[in-house]
Amino acid sequence: MSRYLCILGRFWKNSLLREMSFRGHFAVNVFGELLWVVLLLVFIDVIYSRTPDINGWTEAEYLFLTGTHLLVTGLFEAFFFENCWRISGLVRRGDLDFVLLKPANTQFLLSFQQISYSSLANAPVGIGVCLYALRGDTQGVSAGQWGWFCVLVAAGVVVLYSVLFMFALTSVWLIRQTGVDHLWFYAVSLARYPAEIYRRFVGGALYFSLVFVVPLLLVSNLPANVVVRTVEPWMVAYLLSATAVLLSLSGVVLRAALRSYRSASS
């Protein structure tokens, strides 16, 4: 365990050194992330200047959902996005060999090698948007609610990681699988909005799929609901179970992918 913590520390230090080698690049990245948040807030303001609510979500609730979404996606992008994205390149060039030759768990090495500190900036911004949505009225939220919020945010990040990691591994079979960044963009597009808007579409099939097959709709909605709306306890239990299942499945898919992997070099 301590060996892995040591490796993790080295990975994060290397990533920090890399990002600090391009300080201007880092600053522009952080500025870009902040600008995106501002544009999202403008969009929400534009929407709510025309309607009092969206499927029962008031502006404050929707703002809280947006903040939660920024927190979940910021954490995922910081810790896992680049790692998932680079898998197809490792497979295509045969560089996965170098990962396999190292005396450490392959999933660990593939998942934690890089951290994006500029994306990490979205996490405090997300928390800031959440607090702004509550307009300082945090007294109405119990410690238990905040506790569950943290647990469900973590579960959301793990769900996103498991789904994207498994999708990235399909590059072993499909080669030049360039869709990880696309899939991430679309997953973010889906998870950003109140889950209720999907309920009546194609007889609820999309809602059902995005809740009970690949629970992308829950990664931001459920933590936000715990604080600003109400949540059925079984939904919390379901998301936690689904998180455990997806995480285990990602290990199974990795082992299957490695059995099919043929180095591309020489």
Binding site: I54, S189, Y193, P194, E196, Y198
Partner: peptide
């Protein structure tokens, strides 16, 4: 799809 569904809820 997501954008259209959002706008349906807004309208």
């Amino acid at each position: 799809v997501t954008t259209v569904l959002l706008w349906r809820a807004i309208y």
